[in-house]
Structures are given as structure tokens and as C-alpha cells.
């Protein structure tokens, strides 16, 4: 919130845009830098972070802005991925599904469909989950995500436990998505678009209502706002973003499996949001970068990196409030409210 408030003045707004432009230029140049320093694997890592940042940013809309502690975000992410996987499978075999020829390997077809279908799943399960609140909402979103997990495990026609292989990335006209750096730029493009959309949404009338709901549902009712439809809309948009991320990840990894919607993945999305600072727009991206970076570093060091990450997480929650910014404040010796 704070970083958005400061963009009201024209002077600071132009400075914000300047910072964004510089960061974007650096991100766009990343594949060249990776090559130059002899670390081409960095591009693939950056692609993953970019994709997960989309997923985290969309969870942030629900969790950070609207206060909906959804523990099932990976479900929509997984559904988005499965849309790509299933359509690719049908594209290869040519089999129709329910009489419809649904196969496609075109990103411009699969991506919108993934977003749509993830949104539909979020609509149905969100409509049920939002009848509860508080700790029940946490439990029920987790449980529904687990239900979808089991569904895809049992879905032997699409690989079940073993998942689906997407042998070739979905294609785009005029662009070679099979090239690593190119695919990174494609993902970066979608990430920029998604973050731009989020930045509009959070300052819109709709976004103001979400902020109000997080701070006090009672107040919102007292000014005549029925909160349920707004929470549901927020939940659906959040699910759609996760679907986009899932579809991009399915193409990046060229593999889809129920593990993508495992509850630990939901937990990781939450950690990214909290690390970056819930309710700050770009925090989700920072959180994704830090968590994935940290995991990669620890994993390179020991196979049992979670023995270190787990306690780190506990310490972070106990001793810092507000994720990384809280950590910075703590290190500076400032007060920790």
C-alpha cells in the first residue's frame, strides 16, 4: 500500500516509472548477462522466478489486499498447467474430448483457455469456501486444493501420478519459444502485463473495496457494501493469475504433474507473498526471487536444505513483521512493531 500512496504526486510518480523502467531493462538484459558471466542456467532460473512471481502476485491480490488467507492457490496453478498438458496430449493424439477436438499447441490458444478454466474452478470452489472465514477458510481452501490433487492423481487417462510430458513448448507466431532466452522474454512480457493489470486493479474502485474488506468487513457492511461478491471476484481473478502462471510453467518445464498442486506449493506461494510484504505490489516478485534463490542456493549446498529453510522461516515469522522490509528494519535496529 505504502508504495502506491506515494505515487500520487506527479514528481514521485515519474520517479517510480523511471525505477520501473530501469529494473525492466535490467531484467530484459538478463539472458545476455547470464551468457557473459558464463552462467546460462541463470536464464532458466530467472524464467521460473518470473513465472512464480505471476502466481505470487495473484495470490497477493487475495491475501495481501483482500485479506483472504487462501491455502489452495496451487490448485489453480496446477489446473492452468493441466490445461496446457491436456490440450497438448490431444493435439498429439488427435483424439477428441467429449466429441470436441480440443488439441492445440498454440500458446495464444492454450494460455487464455488456461486462465479461463482456472478461473472457473476458482469460481466454483471459491463460492463454497467463501461461505466460511478465518481459520475455516484456511482449512477449506487447503482441503479443496487437496481434492483436486487427488482428482488428478486418479486421472489415469492423463498420466495420473506420473503426470504428462509436453514434448515441445507451445508455439507462438513468429517467435521461437523453444529458445531459452526467447521463452524467458515471453514470460517476462506476461509478467509485466499481469503486474500492470494488478497495479490498475489495486488502485481502482474494486481495489479500494478489497482494501476495505481486509481492514474491516463490518465497516464495509455499514457503508452498504455486500462483501461476498467482491471477495469472490477477487478470488477468481487470483485464480486466473495462478492459471496463467501454471500454463507458462507447464511450457517451461515441459511437464505437468499433480505435484504442481501439492499443498507445499500453496505454502510456497504464501511464503513468497509474505517474504515480499503482503499488500505491496512488487513485493510478490521480490518474494519469489528471494525464496527461489534461497532454495537454489541451499539445495546446491545440501540435499536436506529444508532442514535449514524451515527454521529460517520460523525465525522470520517470529522476529520480523512484514517480510523482507521487516527484516531490513530489524537489521537497522529500528523498532519492530
Amino acid at each position: 500500500m505504502a508504495d502506491l500512496k506515494t505515487t500520487r504526486g506527479p514528481a514521485s510518480a515519474s520517479r517510480t516509472y523511471a525505477v520501473i523502467a530501469i529494473v525492466l531493462a535490467m531484467l530484459a538484459a538478463l539472458p545476455f548477462i547470464a551468457d557473459a558471466i558464463g552462467q546460462p542456467a541463470l536464464t532458466s532460473l530467472a524464467t521460473r522466478i518470473t513465472i512464480l512471481a505471476i502466481g505470487a502476485a495473484s495470490l497477493n491480490l487475495a491475501l495481501g489486499y483482500c485479506g483472504l488467507v487462501s491455502f489452495g492457490h496451487a490448485a489453480w496453478y496446477g489446473v492452468g498447467a493441466y490445461v496446457v498438458g491436456i490440450m497438448y496430449r490431444h493435439y498429439v493424439t488427435g483424439d477428441p474430448l467429449l466429441g470436441l477436438s480440443i488439441g492445440s499447441d498454440q500458446l495464444l490458444v492454450t494460455l487464455p483457455l488456461a486462465i479461463l478454466i482456472s478461473g472457473l474452478f476458482a469460481l466454483v470452489l471459491g463460492a463454497l469456501s467463501l461461505r466460511t472465514s478465518g481459520v475455516q477458510f484456511i482449512m477449506i481452501t487447503l482441503a479443496f486444493a487437496q481434492m483436486l490433487f487427488f482428482f488428478f492423481v486418479a486421472l489415469k487417462a492423463y498420466g495420473g501420478d506420473d503426470g504428462l510430458i509436453v514434448r515441445r513448448r507451445n508455439a507462438l507466431p513468429f517467435i521461437d519459444t523453444r529458445d531459452g532466452p526467447t521463452y524467458y522474454w515471453v514470460c517476462l512480457f506476461f509478467a509485466v502485463a499481469w503486474f500492470a493489470l494488478m497495479s490498475r486493479i489495486v488502485t481502482s474502485r474494486f481495489g479500494r473495496v478489497l482494501e476495505g474488506i481486509r481492514q474491516s468487513e463490518r465497516r464495509m457492511a455499514a457503508i452498504g457494501v455486500s462483501t461476498y461478491p467482491y471477495k469472490l471476484a477477487c478470488f477468481v481473478i487470483s485464480g486466473m493469475g495462478a492459471g496463467l502462471a501454471g500454463a507458462l510453467m507447464a511450457n517451461h518445464a515441459r511437464f505437468v504433474s499433480p505435484d504442481m498442486m501439492h499443498w507445499t506449493q500453496s505454502g510456497e506461494f504464501m511464503i513468497m507473498v509474505i517474504l515480499g510484504g503482503a499488500g505491496t505490489l512488487f513485493g510478490a516478485a521480490a518474494g519469489a526471487a528471494v525464496l527461489i534463490g534461497l532454495e537454489t542456493q541451499l539445495a546446491a549446498w545440501t540435499e536436506h536444505w529444508q532442514v535449514i529453510l524451515g527454521p529460517l522461516l520460523v525465525l522470520m515469522i517470529i522476529f520480523t513483521r512484514g517480510g523482507l522490509s521487516g527484516l531490513v528494519r530489524l537489521l537497522r535496529g529500528g523498532r519492530n512493531e
Binding site: 490498475r200 486493479i201 488502485t203 481502482s204 474502485r205 474494486f206 481495489g207 479500494r208 473495496v209 464495509m220 457503508i223 452498504g224 457494501v225 461478491p229 467482491y230 471476484a233
Partner: peptide, 13 residues
């Protein structure tokens, strides 16, 4: 809230 629904996603409130 008094001006009707708030399903307006883009303008800066």
C-alpha cells in the same frame, strides 16, 4: 458505495 456497484477495475479511485 453509494454510487452503485464497485466492479470497476481500471480507473484510479
Amino acid at each position: 458505495a453509494g454510487q452503485g456497484h464497485s466492479f470497476r477495475f481500471l480507473g484510479n479511485a
